[in-house]
Amino acid sequence: MKNFSKISLLVSDLSSAAILRAYLIATALRTLEYEVEIMGFLFGNNLYRNLPSELKVYNLPGKNFPEFFGEINKFLPKVNGDIIYAIKPQIASFGVALLKKIFSHKPLVLDIDDWELSWYGGDGWHYCPTPKQLARELLKPDGALRNPYHPLYVKWMEGLVSQADAVTVHTKFLQQRFGGTFVPNGKDTSLFDPTRYDPESSRNRYGLSEYRILMFPGAPRPYKGLEDVLIALDKINQPDLRLVIVGGSPYDDYDRQLQQKWGRWIIKLPKYPADVMPDLVAAAHIVVVPQRDTPETRAQFPLKLTDGMAMAKPVLSTRVGDIPKILGNTGYLVEPACPEQIAEQIQLIFQDLDAANQQGIKARERCVEHYSIEAMASALKSVIAQL
């Protein structure tokens, strides 16, 4: 077998959540004793999340075409891993990786953690411009085709998936669509270890001690179903229940809209560094992941599930995509977009919280076995062995 020692992870936009999957893959690869560098373009102002200093992160500014060609030109010589590992089938990661492969003949792995085209209507999306529109979108300074994230380029990249030497995915939906090896989103179960935290102290620390806490440790978006939880809280109408949202939305003002309508049930906490998250999740009585059923969500592996599982919390989620498979029999499942069922489950959990916490302990055992960094590393080891 060829001896690889260094892996270059290419991220399309380091200011987006794509960096989280890259970080998990990098962490798993480092447990296999590979040297790992994370590289990519910064289309926003800052890194989406600051990564531990031992992980080298190299970035160049993301620009629109044609200036972006110049940035790619500067970027290619810096990619010097023995394996190129592109995160997402985007021009700024997979496109750049394909160029590097052509010039260097190095093996290329592509990770697909979302069905990118689903954001634009999926298979139904087609680009059929008039000649005049095409000229305008290519030539005007703000023309749509100047943007490297235009769905036309996503469609091209998805059409080139077979050019990768290996593909990794994290849900069955993506595996059926693109093939490849299942590599779960691993959790650092030694950091997310409930024996290291005291829930009561955590609740005190974040000003939550007088409430029964439903926690959503992530950014609200309409398809994530938080409205369904808030409608459920309206139905239950018990004054000590609160939905704690950690981090808020970097994308739009959706969390402000939720606050305006359901502010009495919401406690909003700021974004915290990754190593503080277990202490926050320890404060929850229930972790809620109420995904709605959309083409986007069917392709996703919500990281919030394994936050709750690793911390041995009762996890309340919906029957969407891989969620039932991820939770096994260890969580509480309802139909998507069904506030009545959510209300019923919340009340059942609090009626016998001890039994629910026992379910949480089983969820942690399942997480350690199937969704730890070690489980992720084991899957990656077999991918690299085949290169």
Results as ranks from 00 to 15, higher is better:
residue 342 I to W: 03
residue 329 N to H: 12
residue 80 N to D: 15
residue 226 L to T: 09
residue 361 I to L: 15
residue 133 Q to Y: 04
residue 273 P to V: 05
residue 158 E to K: 11
residue 210 E to G: 11
residue 175 Q to I: 04
residue 162 S to M: 11
residue 301 F to S: 10
residue 333 L to P: 04
residue 313 K to R: 13
residue 241 L to A: 07
residue 68 F to Q: 14
residue 93 S to W: 01
residue 303 L to V: 13
residue 160 L to S: 13
residue 41 F to E: 03
residue 5 S to K: 15
residue 68 F to S: 00
residue 37 E to P: 02
residue 219 A to V: 01
residue 172 K to I: 13
residue 200 E to D: 12
residue 305 L to K: 08
residue 360 G to I: 09
residue 123 D to V: 00
residue 204 N to S: 13
residue 6 K to F: 03
residue 156 W to S: 11
residue 37 E to M: 02
residue 84 I to S: 12
residue 137 E to D: 15
residue 315 V to K: 09
residue 352 D to M: 12
residue 1 M to P: 11
residue 371 Y to A: 08
residue 96 V to D: 07
residue 387 L to K: 06
residue 316 L to Q: 12
residue 64 N to Q: 10
residue 62 G to W: 00
residue 385 A to Y: 03
residue 60 L to C: 01
residue 285 H to W: 08
residue 309 M to E: 05
residue 73 N to E: 14
residue 22 A to C: 06
residue 153 Y to E: 10
residue 12 S to N: 14
residue 38 I to P: 04
residue 103 F to S: 15
residue 299 A to M: 00
residue 20 L to Q: 15
residue 173 F to G: 02
residue 175 Q to P: 01
residue 327 L to T: 04
residue 334 V to M: 04
residue 183 V to S: 06
residue 296 E to L: 13
residue 77 P to A: 09
residue 150 H to Q: 08
residue 232 A to W: 08
residue 88 K to R: 14
residue 78 K to E: 13
residue 165 D to V: 08
residue 206 Y to G: 06
residue 387 L to G: 05
residue 114 D to N: 12
residue 316 L to G: 12
residue 204 N to L: 14
residue 93 S to G: 04
residue 71 E to D: 12
residue 62 G to F: 00
residue 46 N to R: 14
residue 32 L to A: 02
residue 5 S to C: 11
residue 294 T to F: 00
residue 241 L to W: 06
residue 9 L to Y: 02
residue 246 V to Y: 03
residue 95 G to L: 04
